[in-house]
Nucleic acid binder design. Structure first.
Lengths: 151, 151
DNA sequence: ATACGTGCAAAATGTTTGCGGCTCA
DNA sequence: TGAGCCGCAAACATTTTGCACGTAT
C-alpha cells in the first residue's frame, strides 16, 4: 500500500467537524494536523509540547477539549497503555489503519502491530458474548529490542 | 460464590510474601483477603471503601503501597479499562484463571471472559514480533445487556 | 452581532511521598 | 530492639471546569 493516506485524515476530520456544525478554530486545526503526522498514540501533554515546539502555543485545556470532541465523533481513539496517561490517535473511517500496540515496559516505546487472526478471534468473542461490542483494544507488554535483558 | 479456589490465592500470596522476607501486617492481609473474594478487577479506592465498609479502616497510601508490592511480585495484575483508574486483580500462579475484560461504556460494568483462540493468536503475534512479550491485555468495549440501546 | 472557540487560572481527581509512631519477628 | 508496616497529611501529576475575551460565520 502506497502512502496515499498522509494528509487525508486531517481533511476527513475537518469535513466531518464542519458537517457536524463545528466552527473552524486555529487550536483545533493545529491539534488535528499534528495528530495526522503521528505514527502512534500521543498523550495530551506530548501534543501540547509538540505544538509548542513548533511555535504554536495552545492552552492545555483546549487540547483536552479538542481530543474529547474528536473522540466523541469517533475521529480519534483513546488508549491506555497502563501508565495512567490517556493517549490518542487518529482513527480512519471504516476501520482502516486499525492496529494494536506493543509497549516496552522499560523505555516506554510504543509500536503498532496488526494481526488478522487476532481480529478474527476478537470478532468471534464479540459475537458470542452478551455485550454489544463496538470497540476493542489489545496491548502487549514486554521489552523492545533495545531494552531486551540479554542484549 | 462456592468456588473451588476461594481462599487459595490469599494463602499463596501470604506464603510468597513471607518467603520473600515480608512481615505480616494487618493492612496488607486485609487487602489480600479482600482481593481474594473479588470476581473481577477493583480500583484502589473501591478496595479502600470496601474495607472501610467492613469495619477495617486502612490508609489510602497503604492500599497503593500494598498493591504496588503485590504487582511487582506478580501476585496481582494491574489493568486499565480506559477511565483513568488503575484496577487490580488477583493473579494465580502459572497463568491459571487468566482472563480478559468486557467493559460497559454506559454503566461501567466489568466482566471477565476467556478465549483460547484469542490466546493462541496473541502467542503467535508475540513470537513474530521483535519485542520480548511477557504480558498482554485485551479489553472489549460496548454495552452490557442492561444498557443495550435496543432493549 | 452572537454563539462558538480559546487561553488562563483554579479546582477536582487519582496517585505518590515524607514522616512519626506502632508492631511483628 | 530494630526493621519493617501503617496511617495521616502534604506533595504531585493529570485532567476538568469556570470565566473573560477573541473570532468565525
Amino acid at each position: 500500500m502506497a502512502k496515499a493516506d498522509a494528509p487525508v485524515w486531517a481533511q476527513y476530520a475537518h469535513e466531518r467537524l464542519a458537517s457536524t456544525g463545528f466552527r473552524r478554530g486555529g487550536a483545533r486545526s493545529a491539534v488535528i494536523e499534528l495528530l495526522d503526522g503521528q505514527e502512534c498514540a500521543r498523550s495530551a501533554i506530548e501534543i501540547e509540547d509538540a505544538l509548542k515546539a513548533g511555535g504554536r502555543r495552545v492552552g492545555r485545556a483546549t487540547v483536552y477539549r479538542v481530543l474529547d470532541e474528536l473522540d466523541s465523533l469517533g475521529l480519534v481513539t483513546r488508549i491506555d497503555i497502563g501508565d495512567g496517561l490517556a493517549r490518542y490517535e487518529a482513527m480512519y473511517p471504516g476501520g482502516a489503519q486499525h492496529h494494536h500496540h506493543l509497549v516496552c515496559d522499560d523505555c516506554g516505546k510504543l509500536m503498532p502491530f496488526t494481526d488478522d487472526e487476532l481480529e478474527r478471534a476478537i470478532r468471534r468473542v464479540a459475537r458470542r458474548e452478551a455485550f454489544a461490542i463496538n470497540d476493542h483494544d489489545v496491548t502487549l507488554h514486554g521489552f523492545c529490542p533495545d531494552c531486551a535483558p540479554s542484549s
